[in-house]
Computed example of a mutant assay.
Amino acid sequence: MTHHILKATKENVHLGGFSHLLEPALTIDSGDTIDVETYTGYYVYDKAPPEFLTPEFVDICQNLPPERKIAAGPHLLTGPIYVKDAEPGDVLEVILEAIAPSLPVGFNAIRTGWGALPQQFPQPALRFVRLDLVHNIAEFPPDSGIKIPLKPFFGILGVATPETARTSIPPGCYGGNIDNRELQTGSRVFLPIFVSGGLFSIGDGHSAQGDGEVNVTAIETSMNGRIILKLRKDLQLSTPVAETSTDIITMGFAQTLDAALEMAVKNMIDFLERFVNLSAEDAYVLCSLAVNFRITQVVNSPQKGVHGMLPKSIFSHKINL
């Protein structure tokens, strides 16, 4: 297997969305390892402190080619990565081997009309949050004594679809802006593939986030990672599934939390039928007895997210994905 380094440059990133027409930033074989660099804050760089800025990031913000500006989403994504032999109907396994902030500062933004309480907090607000990368904490508010553990993850892990320009804001069957705080180092994410090569992109680094991400953003952070991309022709999925060291995760995305919960439950039942050989009714009962359904996010309009966490510890045998 080959090891690649994918730097975030104006040639290797794209802004605001996904497109199957994008020129790949990298072409790999299944099983290759990639050290990937991501930046965040394209629309706030002119307000950022010096520690937030690198010459490469400033170059991206000032000189990103028009063809790399895909849609109106705020996210700067690294990729896409083309996986040889990947075809629609296959599954892409994304192994998250390492995730770490690359800079000692991130930001949080309240955006007018967004978030869980847009009427109560209508004014935009931008805060830059210092990261203590030695002690792995962020103190917020500053000098408050409130210390938030850093638990970094990538908010966006997604593949392209046949759409020419799909915004990066909502998640869906392709992954995208999942914003699931459980997908930290050591996790695996399984994404259905919709176009040749998969065209996987990554970004939207978060150093810390609560379930729900209620004010629209987490601690948005430029993030580096090491990933392995594996082509899985032995799997068939219609929606993303993930695995952490402790849980299997199914997801639901819909315009209401009720509908997102219903989808997450149905997807968990389907998983238990296929991979644990339970009947649908037994799977439904097990969901009520042992699966924890949590709000992923409520802000990525028009899609809210709910995820179900199935503890692997309850099984006497390994679940093979």
Rank of each mutant, 00 (worst) to 15 (best):
Asn224Ala: 11
Val36Gln: 01
Leu96Val: 14
Ile148Asp: 02
Ile146Asn: 15
Thr244Val: 13
Ile99Lys: 00
Val159Arg: 02
Thr54Leu: 10
Phe293Lys: 02
Ile227Trp: 05
Asn63Ala: 13
Leu278Cys: 12
Thr296Pro: 08
Lys84Asn: 12
Arg232Met: 11
His14Lys: 07
Asp59Thr: 14
His206Ala: 13
Cys61Asp: 05
Val285Cys: 08
Ile148Asn: 04
Glu281Met: 13
Glu97Cys: 10
Ile148Glu: 00
Ile295Cys: 12
Leu257Val: 09
Glu97Thr: 10
Pro104Trp: 05
Glu182Cys: 14
Met251His: 14
Gln236Pro: 04
Leu231Ile: 10
Ser288Trp: 01
Thr2Ala: 15
Phe121Ile: 09
Thr27Pro: 04
Val265Cys: 06
His307Leu: 13
Asp29Met: 14
Asn108Ser: 15
Ile202Ser: 08
Asn177Leu: 09
Ala98Lys: 15
Glu11Tyr: 04
Thr167Ala: 11
Leu229Val: 09
Leu131Arg: 02
Glu139Asn: 06
Thr161Ala: 06
Leu117Asn: 14
Thr38Tyr: 04
Gly106Val: 01
Gly106Ser: 05
Asn63Ile: 10
Asp247Met: 05
Leu257Cys: 10
Ser301Thr: 13
Val276Asp: 05
Glu281Gly: 04
Asp247Thr: 10
Ser168Phe: 02
Pro171Cys: 08
Tyr42Val: 08
Thr167Asp: 05
Tyr174Asn: 08
Val276Ala: 15
Ala264Ile: 09
Asp132Tyr: 01
Tyr174Ala: 07
His20Thr: 07
Tyr284Ala: 15
Ile227Glu: 01
Ile227Gly: 02
Asp270Val: 11
Glu220His: 03
Leu131Gly: 00
Leu77Thr: 07
Glu37Asn: 12
Ala71Arg: 08
Arg188Val: 08
Ser19Thr: 08
Gly17Glu: 04
Leu64Glu: 04
Met263Tyr: 00
Glu51Lys: 10
Val298Ile: 10
Val241Arg: 01
Thr244Glu: 05
Ile169Gly: 00
Gly212Thr: 06
Val58Leu: 15
Phe154His: 02
Arg294Gln: 15
Asp211Val: 06
Phe140Arg: 04
Thr27Ser: 14
Cys287His: 02
Thr167Phe: 00
Gly16Ile: 07
Phe153Pro: 07
Ala138Arg: 01
Pro141Phe: 03
Pro50Met: 11
Arg111Glu: 09
Gln303Met: 15
Ile148Tyr: 03
Gly203Pro: 04
Lys47Phe: 12
Ile314Glu: 05
Ile295Lys: 05
Val134Gln: 13
Leu15Asp: 00
Val44Ile: 15
Phe153Ala: 06
Pro311Lys: 03
Asp258Trp: 11
Leu261Lys: 13
Gly175Asn: 10
Pro118Thr: 09
Arg68Tyr: 03
Leu117Ala: 14
Gly210Arg: 15
Val298Met: 08
Lys304Met: 14
Tyr82Ala: 06
Ile193Gln: 01
